[in-house]
């Protein structure tokens, strides 16, 4: 049992916060302009890096890198050759067979939009089927479970966890009632509802992290 990730969206459909924990399949960094600033430093496009694959880990979709990691020949040949374009060997490198598959290559902004789209469609589906103002709560697949908590002001808290976890709606409510109110709503330095900037700040990130790591489902 574990917890994978947390997304927060505002009422204008923008992703304003992201954090992840035990993900084995990380999203690629967002493309330029696809993501607001101050959402998550980990997935924000890195403009000032000269070579993106040197800093952000090996780019497995690149045909040359895939070849090198699969054969290992080029790495052993010549010490004088410039090594810098080659990725450093990683313990957790994925098998080359699955590396070029397009499903592993979602950028973060695409992923965030898909999550929002699924949540919104399911919300409308549940509302239509029940015939009243009923909320969508969660869904389960074979590898994860997605939970939704929506506040009165239209903020949507979305969490991905292990499929065997119970409903984590109360956790999302706790994040809202605790760290979110304390370090975002009551923080004069965070522009709420700006449509130009996320809500990421050190206090909120730390206190959310501490809360999630303290849960029994986190391990």
């Amino acid at each position: 049992m574990t917890i994978y990730s947390l997304y927060i969206y505002d009422r204008h459909c923008n992703c304003i916060y992201y954090q992840d924990w035990h993900r084995t399949k990380r999203p690629r960094t967002a493309v330029e302009g696809g993501l607001l600033p101050a959402v998550s430093a980990a997935v924000y496009p890195k403009a000032d890096e000269p070579a993106p694959d040197a800093a952000a880990g090996p780019d497995w979709r690149h045909p040359r890198n895939t070849l090198n990691s699969a054969t290992g020949v080029v790495v052993a040949v010549n010490d004088d050759a410039p090594r810098s374009p080659l990725p450093p060997p990683r313990a957790s490198s994925p098998p080359p067979a699955q590396a070029p598959s397009p499903s592993a290559a979602l950028t973060f902004d695409e992923e965030a939009k898909l999550v929002y789209g699924v949540v919104l469609s399911l919300r409308n589906l549940v509302r239509k089927l029940s015939g009243r103002d009923e909320q969508f709560v969660n869904y389960t697949t074979s590898t994860y479970k997605l939970h939704l908590y929506e506040t009165m002001s239209g903020y949507k808290f979305v969490m991905l966890s292990d499929p065997k976890a119970d409903s984590l709606r109360f956790v999302l409510r706790q994040i809202y009632a605790g760290p979110f109110l304390e370090y975002v709503v009551r923080n004069p330095l965070v522009p709420m509802d700006s449509r130009e900037q996320g809500i990421d700040n050190e206090f909120f990130r730390l206190s959310t992290d501490r809360m999630i790591r303290g849960l029994t489902v986190f391990e």
């Binding site: 084995t24 789209g117 699924v118 969508f136 409903s167």
Partner: peptide, 19 residues
């Protein structure tokens, strides 16, 4: 879409959706 959002490897689509 739910099958593509998996944080760990390949996933099935949604099995149970709860309101």
């Amino acid at each position: 879409i739910t099958a593509r959002l998996s944080p760990t490897g390949t996933s099935s689509g949604a099995n149970v959706i709860s309101g």
